[in-house]
């Protein structure tokens, strides 16, 4: 039977050669097939943790498990792990080594020992998924930042990993491109790939993640489903994180009795739907006519 948790860390400690303790006694399990977000300020140890997940860094103390198996650090076992766990790095300019987009994406599949034809197919699939087929013959240095970011994701997708780790996928991207990348993750996730990403954007994490870890100073200080983590005010304060705007607005509307007090909405669409649901109930009850209740309750909220 396949393990429920795809990656696990037990008693993980790591410090860099200069003495900084980057990770302190990390114990966590990452659910398979879900989208997991890591939140936390810069220097919290998110990237260092990610580098442990595919064996780039070796724990000082503690162990990493992939699908219930302890990670070994000899050559072939590491290659096998890196085949299954792919990392997209934050800065595309240090990841993209080739001057040609096609060659860049083909590097991973060829390393897996695939034939030219298979690699070609994987490259095309990955470029199609990330919407960069038209950039195929463009040199890397002609691309914009957002395009480079998508090439960096295609790099890893072409290796068809079971786990895709993405370090700050939306950093420096405008909202439209950020949304496109998150949609892409959603699509990849539905195909059965576990997604792990780090971000500073609480709204993004709240809307997109199934499970959240909050890190600070090399420690995991909180974890859980998004609606639970973001309702824990003490935890948010400790991690210096803001509450997602959606939750804030929802709580305020709930307090004033404008929305039903069921589970908080996760996305903008869900939020409007819950408002609309309330609207139809109250319309039936109070036989209101004319103006949209949604507008009214928003006006009421803004006015008082």
């Amino acid at each position: 039977m396949r393990d429920k948790n795809v990656l696990e860390a037990k008693g993980l400690n790591f410090s860099y050669p200069d003495g900084t303790q980057a990770l302190i006694d990390i114990n966590l399990s990452i659910p398979r097939g879900k989208k997991t977000a890591f939140l936390g300020p810069n220097g919290a140890g998110k990237t260092t943790l990610f580098l442990h997940f595919n064996g780039i860094l070796k724990p000082e103390r503690g162990k990493i498990y992939f699908a219930g198996q302890e990670v070994c650090y000899h050559h072939t076992a590491l290659l096998e792990l890196r085949k299954k766990v792919g990392i997209v790095f934050q800065e595309p300019d240090t990841q993209l080594f080739s001057a040609s987009v096609r060659q860049e994406v083909s590097f991973g599949p060829l390393n897996l020992g695939l034939s030219r034809e298979e690699a070609e197919e994987r490259v095309n699939e990955a470029m199609e998924a990330t919407d960069i087929l038209d950039l195929r013959d463009r040199p890397t240095h002609f691309l914009s930042y957002g395009q480079k970011k998508r090439v960096a994701i295609a790099d890893i997708l072409a290796m068809q990993p079971q786990v895709l780790i993405c370090d700050e996928p939306t950093a420096w991207l405008d909202t439209r491109h950020a949304a496109r990348i998150m949609e892409l993750f959603h699509k990849i996730n539905r195909a059965g790939v576990t997604i792990i990403f780090s971000t500073h954007d609480v709204d993004l994490a709240y809307s997109w993640a199934d499970y959240i870890f909050i890190m600070k100073d090399g420690m995991v200080i909180g974890e859980g489903a998004p609606e639970r983590v973001f309702c824990d005010d003490r935890l948010l304060e400790e991690a210096e994180l803001e509450r997602p705007w959606l939750l804030d607005v929802y709580e305020e509307l709930k307090r004033r009795g404008f929305v039903a007090a069921n589970s908080p909405p996760r996305t903008r669409e869900e939020f409007f739907l819950s408002l609309a649901g309330k609207e139809s109930c109250s319309l039936a009850r109070e036989e209101r006519k004319g103006r949209s209740f949604k507008r009214e309750c928003l006006q009421g909220f803004l006015g008082g």
Binding site: I56, F107, N111, R116, E120, D155
Partner: peptide
Amino acid sequence: LLARCYTGELKVL
């Protein structure tokens, strides 16, 4: 490169 199974040769299509 290591994260993408680099083994000492930059193989590309």
